[in-house]
Design a binder for these strands. Structure first.
Length: 345
DNA sequence: AAGCCGGGGGA
DNA sequence: TCCCCAGGCTT
């Protein structure tokens, strides 16, 4: 039996019953695929269920304010996915009459849909012979065929896409594509794959050459940048505070946070007091103190955020303030959400 | 071609 | 700790 046939048979026995596997509706498949980009299935499931409930149809998503979409997305990361999701929902709703395009080429034009997602929607929803190449597929193909080209090099990306096309089974492309990914997720895992019970073991190059741990090859870079965040948590006499929306480029676009004083290194209370003028035109605060005794280092994949929350109280009324009790309604990064959870005046 | 963009979980 | 996750966009 050849590679793709074995994948298909394995899938029919081992497939998980996931919420998006009950349908071929392009809207629901698209929603799940965007959420699962660089995200584990287990992490995505509750978000998928929340979105389907809040937005049963693409028009519901299109009609929602971005702030609601970001709030529901809160905690899932890579927030450009949520912004692009919303933008694409509007395009589908307004320019495509609520229907998703049914070709790889047309799908690829939509915001947030790249090669993988266009192939996934085309194959799963429309049964088109398009090969998906995600992290699982890279791993399975690299091991089984003994390919040592770096999966994140230009040459490697092209090579694996061609290989994936060559070996795919077009007689049942939607199951084959999901099958090879499921196989990578459950059987041919990054660490300690279950080669002992693997149906592909006999002809797997990596297994034969004892190179399971050496494949796939990946060029690593990932330099971490250290940043120092001082959040100014203003508190007025009416239990109001100030939030600002992050604009421009960089992390957490369009999410909310407290007024931020970013510095080159840790600063102390005196320096916080000096810089308050940029944020407040009121009189002197009555009190400034560091809220978190323990160090908070919020770790993103590419940045370490050394964070201090400074509580700054006033005996007056803040203009444009919001009730501290209402903070939970705004879309915020996990770093801010964790603070809000513990914050009691 | 390389860098940027989150957060969480497994070993 | 390090690595990876149903990747895509920007420069």
């Amino acid at each position: 039996m050849n590679f793709s046939r074995i994948i298909l048979e394995w899938y029919h026995v081992n497939k998980r019953l996931l919420p998006w596997r009950k349908t071929h509706d392009p809207y629901l498949i698209w929603l799940s695929e965007i959420m699962l980009q660089q995200t584990r299935v287990a992490q995505g499931i509750p978000y998928y269920l929340k979105f389907v409930e809040a937005f049963p149809k693409v028009q519901d998503l299109a009609g929602a304010p971005e702030e609601q979409v970001l709030k529901l997305w809160q905690g899932l990361g890579y927030y450009s996915r949520a912004r692009n999701l919303h933008a694409t929902a509007k395009i589908i709703s307004e320019k495509y009459n609520g229907r998703f395009p049914n070709t790889y080429k047309e799908l690829l034009k939509l915001k947030g849909i790249g090669d993988y997602t266009a192939s996934a929607i085309a194959s799963i929803c429309f049964n088109l012979p398009e090969a998906v190449v995600d992290g699982n597929v890279y791993r399975v193909l690299a091991r089984y065929y003994g390919v040592d080209l770096p999966i994140n090099s230009s040459e490697g990306i092209l090579y694996f896409k061609e290989l994936a096309k060559k070996v795919m089974d077009v007689t049942n492309i939607r199951d084959y594509n999901q099958g090879i990914m499921e196989f990578g997720a459950l059987q041919c895992t990054p660490k300690s794959p279950e080669c002992g019970i693997c149906p592909l073991r006999e002809s797997c190059v990596a297994f034969a050459t004892n190179n399971i741990d050496g494949l796939p090859v990946k060029i690593k870079k990932n330099k971490v940048r250290n940043r120092y965040f001082n959040y100014l948590v203003l508190v007025d006499e009416n239990k109001q505070t100030l939030l600002q929306q992050r604009k421009g480029s960089g992390i957490w676009q369009n999410l909310y946070q407290f007024p931020l004083l970013e510095t080159e290194k840790y600063i102390e209370q005196a320096e916080v007091a000096q810089n308050l003028g940029e944020y407040i035109t009121l009189e002197e605060p009555s009190e400034i103190y560091l809220y978190n005794e323990n160090k908070i280092v919020h770790k993103l994949s590419h940045q370490h955020l050394h964070t201090r929350f400074w509580i700054i109280t006033f005996d007056s009324n803040l203009e444009n303030g919001i009730q501290i009790a209402e903070l939970h309604k705004y879309p915020v990064p996990v770093l801010i959400a964790d603070f809000i959870k513990t914050f009691k005046i």
